[in-house]
Design a protein around this nucleic acid. Structure first.
Lengths: 203, 203
DNA sequence: CACTAAAGCGGAGGTGCCTCCGTTTATTTA
DNA sequence: TAAATAAACGGAGGCACCTCCGCTTTAGTG
């Protein structure tokens, strides 16, 4: 199921439909963008009518593109994952390997934050759409693995770490309670983890 | 947590509040009764406004008694269980022990049917209200056990059966697929089971 | 360019959810 | 029995969901 192009905006869904008319694609992209903001700020229960309004389209248009709230949530979520994985490449190009890794992990925290907000809907989606979990978690861990290996290869972090160990450490963020200072706490966890990774590095 | 009386209608919830005013109790009972019908016929997503309308009260009254849909579902469900267990005693009094058992199992099938309709909401409730499952399943299996033991003691069914085995057999009803002929199929299962139980009985 | 069919748009409208508060009613007290 | 008061009632109103279908725009075609 190939996506046929991948701009900064979300493209059509995975199934290979005939391409949308230009205006339709524009509206669709705008809807996803606005929805991503709204879900992040107001949670998954954000008003769909408000999303349509802010996207400058009628409610009918929203429903034509996304027949249910879950459809919209899924697309937003996949877009989030897309962005996260894409960022890995950019960061690697623009920063020393260890800095790239650290920045990426910070961004990973933001991603988890989103995921928390979407939790209820995601649970529904994950039971419905069985490919969603495997698709996304695979891509994310692949992105992280490449950053870690690059950092290790360049000598910026120690070479004896396994990507899945780091993933596991970050996993602590998942299970942490939902306190107000969750965000700061997670940021510190990333820093701490980086210190550990840098300790005893060649470079 | 004693219920202070138990008529054919649902009483107030378990917690020992001061008694409701007569009109309030009347309205509450009527709401539960109507809700039970509506949930059975239309599923848990039945309109709450319609329930209030048919019960002859304002929507505000419904919401005062049951702040959320789940509250109402829970009360209806507990009432269902109550009725089922109560029926065991009545049937035992009015019929030969084996007939009582058979009739009760038929009624059990109806109960399961309700449970299916309420499935989605029940799943939410069972994660929230941890006592609900243990309360109800305990009472139901106790009711069945007493019927089986009475039938075995009177010689109407064989004596070498274990109540939990029968429960287990009926459990097949749960896992059966949701086909349109589900009801008939289940009825036949009960008959079959009874034949097996009667085979080789003393009496 | 003009024309047309197909694709897409959008919002009115019907319904449901839930809250809030002025009005009604049961119960207690005198 | 009558007045006082606490409890309960109920529906209007505001918001969201979702469908339906007449109108508008786009992408081809000659």
């Amino acid at each position: 199921m190939p996506d046929q192009e991948m701009t900064t905006e979300a493209t059509r869904g995975a199934s290979a439909q005939k391409p949308l008319r230009a205006d339709a694609q524009r509206n669709r992209d705008k809807l996803v963008e606005v929805a991503a903001q709204m879900f992040a700020s107001d949670g998954v229960d954000a008003s769909l009518e408000e999303i349509a309004r802010r996207a400058g389209v009628g409610i009918g248009t929203l429903y034509r593109h996304f027949p249910t709230r879950e459809h919209l949530v899924e697309v937003v979520y996949r877009r989030e994952v897309e962005g996260l994985c894409h960022a890995a490449g950019d960061l690697a190009r623009e920063h020393p390997a260890d800095v790239a890794l650290e920045l990426w992990m910070q961004r990973f925290v933001d991603y988890i934050a989103t995921k928390r907000g979407l939790a209820t809907s995601l649970r529904v989606l994950l039971t419905t759409n069985s490919t969603l979990f495997s698709d996304t978690s695979g891509r994310v861990s692949a992105a992280m693995r490449s950053l870690i290996e690059a950092a290790a290869a360049s000598g910026k972090i120690r070479a004896d770490v396994d990507a899945s160990d780091v993933m596991h450490a970050l996993g602590g963020i998942y299970s942490a309670p939902n306190t107000p200072d969750w965000r700061e706490r997670s940021g510190r966890l990333v820093k701490l983890l980086m210190d550990g990774l840098r300790f005893g590095a060649r470079g």
